[in-house]
């Protein structure tokens, strides 16, 4: 753990999941800022509007796939169009209920998607992620 995880973004339309995931993250990373967005569009807007503001820019984005409006895939397509410098500031991990191997392999086609995790996100998984990427 080379550095403290400063900011995490949860992109999920399920409020219960967001509640539980936020709680799990806090169990091991109590200082981390957690930004919760309930749609892809909302998350994208935030990332663009915050692009020139120094703080807080998420270093880790958990992205759900099945969402009303802009879903996870559409978000990835838009995110890909963003400034490369902005892209490089965060790593994206898919967080989905889907156990479908198709979805998993589809994620791997995006180079900036680092991992694919099945819900629920637990403190154990969180520790693994922080240990692996930060």
């Amino acid at each position: 753990m080379s550095d403290i995880l400063k900011c995490v973004m949860l992109v999920d339309d399920d409020k219960n999941d967001n509640f539980f995931h936020e709680r799990e993250i806090r169990k091991t990373n109590p200082e981390t800022i957690i930004i919760v967005k309930t749609s892809g569009k909302e998350a994208l807007d935030y990332l663009i509007s915050q692009s020139y503001i120094i703080e807080p820019h998420p270093e880790l984005i958990f992205l759900d796939i099945n969402m009303p409006g802009m879903n996870g895939w559409e978000f990835l397509a838009e995110y890909n169009k963003m400034d490369k410098e902005l892209q490089s500031r965060a790593i994206i991990i898919m967080l989905s209920t889907s156990k479908n191997p198709e979805d998993e392999s589809r994620c791997k086609s995006w180079s900036f998607v680092s991992d694919y995790i099945k819900k629920p996100l637990t403190r154990g998984i969180m520790n693994d992620i922080v240990g692996k990427y930060f």
Binding site: D14, D17, F20, R23, T97, S98
Partner: peptide, 17 residues
């Protein structure tokens, strides 16, 4: 089955809480 998983997981999560 997929959609039923989600509320069930929520129940399970709250059980943990």
């Amino acid at each position: 089955s997929h959609n039923l998983q989600e509320p069930l997981r929520t129940v399970s999560n709250y059980m943990q809480v």
